[in-house]
Write a protein that binds this DNA or RNA. Structure first.
Length: 811
RNA sequence: GCCGAGGUGGCGGAAUGGCAGACGCGUAGGUCUCAAAAACCUAUGGGGCCUUAAACCUCGUGAGGGUUCGACUCCCUCCCUCGGCACCA
């Protein structure tokens, strides 16, 4: 009678033991940065910072899509640990911000309380999955010890001239009642939401959906408002953000998305002259078509429409002259030129631009067909009519939010200083008179616990109703002043969290060992030893959000001298999204898969195996209940294999050895490429071979099999390793098995025989024979099946691939 | 419209110039059982040939063309799906 494999008991047992033995707690102080040459000086192991994008703790808890992604990351971490690396694999919570707050509002509970509960639930779920996280170093972005440094970051941005406040036309979500960054406004499809109007009703006319721009969080169609807001000057880094994409090893689709978003256009600003002598600068990427210009089109905020409606315009009554030939060109105000891009003016070239053609035809403007002239670039520049100019689609990052649940923006406005024109640093902040950052010693600016935290949509955040919060003394003159009442975008919180992990120690709950002294942001030695992140694992939906912001913030901190690297994630793998019943998992569809019930019923190992076996890591696999049952069967099969009275034979037979070493080779290569599905398939094949050769398996083979399984099924492997094989704890600290090429060479080869490229038979030959063209040709021709096909035909050519194939070309 | 990734059995998916469908799910039949479950064994792309069986033939990787001794794989044209950008000049 084979003892039953009790997944609940086994998994709980090892999770407890791992924790007690600090199996996944890294030795932060003694790591080696593999990028440095003087490794020997420091200490034992090379570090490997293995990071999965931290989740925001939602109410429903972790769903199977999270488990799919986090397991993919965990497997790689375990694989690297078995390669002798000191793996640092932390986890935390992106718990500050609109996503957590919207839920708190919905259930009418204070966000402080909700976050306490949801983070606890998340931790339980992630522990149940058996991930190898270092639980001694977690971060929670809504903790004052954390957001103190988010605020510090804002202050540094301001001091460096990279944070400024200005009135701009911005996106406003009428449901979330706050402004949003450009990156947080998208098509309904990209947001994965049905578009809604300000009253929360789904827009009925589906034909308009594709033109709508909605809020990333709630799917409400955004409005445009002119408001005074804080921005981070990400555009200053546009060129570096773009060019560094060539240097980093990222999933291609994410690189492409960032390139598109940055949207670099190289062209020229050409100066046209109005009749009254005024300059009329125009941005174009096609100065070579200047000869064919017939009108000038101006952007108009009032007329402009992002939708795809008909082009309309109004003649201004004015004319401009073409700087080269002096031709007279009418100036039109239009609805199709985007304000805020380039100079806001364009030259109308109907012959070479479809949009200009459409407009010209409608208003009966001239259409001139003259061949483009490449020499014009140089000529215009030489004659001083225009100069080369690069334009970017990227806009500055709008970071203020009129909400409660976020890090208060640490800025103070003093009316008195403003009236005198006093600025923080005269040379940098023209136009920012009266604005001063909160002195570093006064950080954090604590978020007060208030009852009326719901947004009102007045253009101000809930903190604006609390004089105790905003009435402060001016840091400059000591007079009456007002604190900023907006809070920061949640993406500011997450733009630097990866820097915090190695510096944080949960027991003391301070970011950075020097946090108490207030001297420095991070411990320099730790940063040098542990960063940048070696492998970042996460979703592609953050292509132009988190992943762009983090790169920007890292570049700034580098330029300010705090970091010695300027790309946070030299390697990023974009995992796919799990699907259920052919659709993305979402609450509204009601197809969210909760991992808890599967862990309970089948165990974490079965769930992990199934999630990884469903398909490639960057794909969109569909979750089915019946699939996980197959994995349960596989685990039982493995378990039974280890319950057999193991033979006394010291060596496995040849078939087994050959299969084992092929498997080691294949699985190793597959894991390196995140092809976990085929890695698992190969382990299954090995198990099948072992089952058919039960009496001939050596202990050494069984040990290797256990090691191969360890990253995928950590509990099962540990149980087998320690309890059945009697090996020392822990399987996760063992060396990954190596393959020996001598076992990869089979004694016999199956050679395919083709006639004119069509398979007509196979012959099994000894290795040496299979490598000889003469022998193989002879044997193949004498094979009756093949001979039949060659009868009466003349062999024109023989194609021979040693050990694989012979192809007879006949007439 | 532009850019990127794809299209393979009933299903998830293997194979990146050399035996298409590994591995798993599902399905059918069988063994065990009083019975069922579990487990195990066998079969499983379509069509044909055949009394049966072994075997064999033929078609087949979105459609059409091309390169090649040989194409799921490379090239061209088209269709469709997914992702990103989008009156960005």
């Amino acid at each position: 009678m084979v003892p039953k494999y009790d997944h609940k008991e086994v998994e709980a047992k090892w999770q407890k033991k791992w924790e007690e033995e600090h199996l996944y707690t890294s030795d932060i102080e003694s790591a080696i940065n593999p990028f440095y040459d003087d490794k020997a000086k420091i200490s034992s192991k090379e570090r490997f910072y293995n990071l999965w994008m931290f989740p925001y703790p939602s109410a429903e808890g972790l769903h199977a899509g999270h488990a799919f992604a986090s397991t993919g990351s965990d497997i790689y971490g375990r694989f690297m640990r078995m390669h002798g690396k000191d793996v640092f694999q932390p986890i935390g919570y992106d718990s500050f911000g609109i996503h957590s707050e919207n839920y708190a509002i919905k259930i009418d509970e204070n966000p402080h309380e909700v976050v306490k509960r949801t983070t606890k639930h998340y931790e339980e779920q992630m522990r149940a999955l058996g991930h190898g996280y270092d639980w001694t170093r977690t971060v929670t972005t809504s903790s004052p010890d954390y957001y103190r440094w988010t605020q510090w970051l804002f202050v540094k941005m301001f001091e460096a001239g990279l944070a400024y406040k200005k009135i701009a036309t911005v996106n406003f979500c009428p449901s979330c009642k706050t402004v949003l960054a450009d990156e947080q406004v998208m098509s309904p499809q990209t947001a994965g939401k049905e578009p809604r109007d300000a009253n929360g009703k789904v827009i009925e006319d589906k034909s308009t959906w594709e033109r709508l721009k909605v809020c990333e969080r709630c799917g409400t169609v955004v409005e445009k408002k002119d408001l005074s807001q804080w921005f981070f000057k990400i555009t200053k880094y546009a060129d570096k953000l773009l060019s560094d994409l060539d240097e980093i090893d990222w999933s291609e689709r994410v690189v492409t998305a960032q390139r598109n978003w940055i949207g670099k256009s190289e062209g020229m600003i050409i100066n046209f002259k109005k009749e009254n002598g005024e300059d009329l600068p125009v941005f174009t990427t096609r100065p070579d078509t200047l000869n064919a210009v017939t009108f000038i089109a101006l952007a108009d905020e009032g007329l402009y429409n992002e939708g795809n409606e008909e082009k309309v315009g109004e003649f201004t009554g004015e004319y401009a002259s073409d700087p080269l030939s002096g031709r007279k060109l009418p100036i039109w105000k239009t609805n199709y030129v985007a304000p805020g891009y380039g100079t806001g003016n364009i030259m109308g070239v109907p012959a070479y631009d479809e949009r200009d053609m459409e407009f010209a035809e409608k208003y009966h403007l001239d259409i001139v067909e003259k061949d483009p002239d490449e020499n014009l670039w140089e000529k215009i520049e030489k004659e001083g009519w225009g100069k080369r100019h690069t334009n970017y689609h990227l806009r500055d990052w709008l970071v203020s939010r009129q909400r409660y649940w976020g890090a208060p923006i640490p800025m103070i406005y003093c009316e008195h200083c403003a009236s005198k024109g006093t600025t923080f640093k005269d040379h940098v902040f023209k136009g920012m008179a009266g604005w001063f950052p909160v002195p570093e010693k006064d950080l954090p600016v604590l978020l007060p616990d208030i009852k009326d935290y719901k947004p009102e949509g007045t253009g101000k955040g809930p903190l604006a109703n609390h004089p105790d919060f905003y009435k402060v003394k001016c840091p400059k003159c000591g007079g009456e002043a007002t604190r900023e009442t907006d809070v920061m975008d949640t993406f500011v919180d997450s733009s630097w969290y990866f820097l915090a992990y190695p510096n944080v120690n949960t027991k003391e709950w301070k970011v950075g060992p020097s946090a108490s002294s207030g001297q420095a942001f991070f411990d320099k030695k730790i940063m040098e030893a542990w960063l940048p992140v070696d492998l970042y694992f996460g979703g592609a939906e953050h292509s132009v959000l988190h992943l762009m912001y983090s790169r920007f913030v890292t570049m700034v901190l580098h330029d300010l001298g705090y970091l010695d690297f300027d790309e946070p994630f030299p390697r990023f793998f974009a995992h796919g999204l799990m699907i259920k019943d052919g659709a993305k998992m979402s609450k509204s569809r009601g197809n969210v898969v909760n991992p808890d019930e599967y862990i309970d019923k089948f165990g974490a190992d079965a769930l992990r195996l199934y999630l990884m076996f469903m398909g490639p890591m960057d794909g969109y696999p569909d979750f089915r209940d019946s699939g996980i049952e197959g994995m349960e069967r596989f685990i039982k099969k493995v378990w039974r294999l280890f319950q057999l009275p193991i033979s006394n034979s010291r060596f496995s037979n040849k078939e087994i050895l050959s299969k084992l070493h092929q498997t080691i080779q294949g699985v190793t290569g597959d894991i390196e490429q995140f092809k976990y599905n085929t890695a698992i398939a190969k382990i299954m094949e090995l198990v099948n071979v072992l089952e058919n050769n039960k009496s001939q398996i050596s202990i050494s083979t069984l040990r290797s099999l256990t090691l191969l399984l360890a990253p995928f099924a950590p509990h099962l492997s540990e149980e087998i390793w320690v309890e059945i094989l009697g090996q020392p704890f822990s399987v996760h600290q063992q060396k990954w098995p190596e393959y020996d090429t001598k076992y990869l060479i089979a004694d016999q080869k199956v050679v395919a025989v083709q006639i004119n490229g069509k398979l007509r038979g196979t012959i099994t030959l000894d290795l040496e024979v299979a490598g000889s063209e003469k022998e193989v040709t002879k044997i193949a021709k004498s094979d009756p099946k093949i001979a039949k096909w060659l009868e009466g035909k003349k062999v024109i050519k023989v194609v021979f691939v040693p050990g694989k194939l012979v192809n007879f070309v006949v007439n």
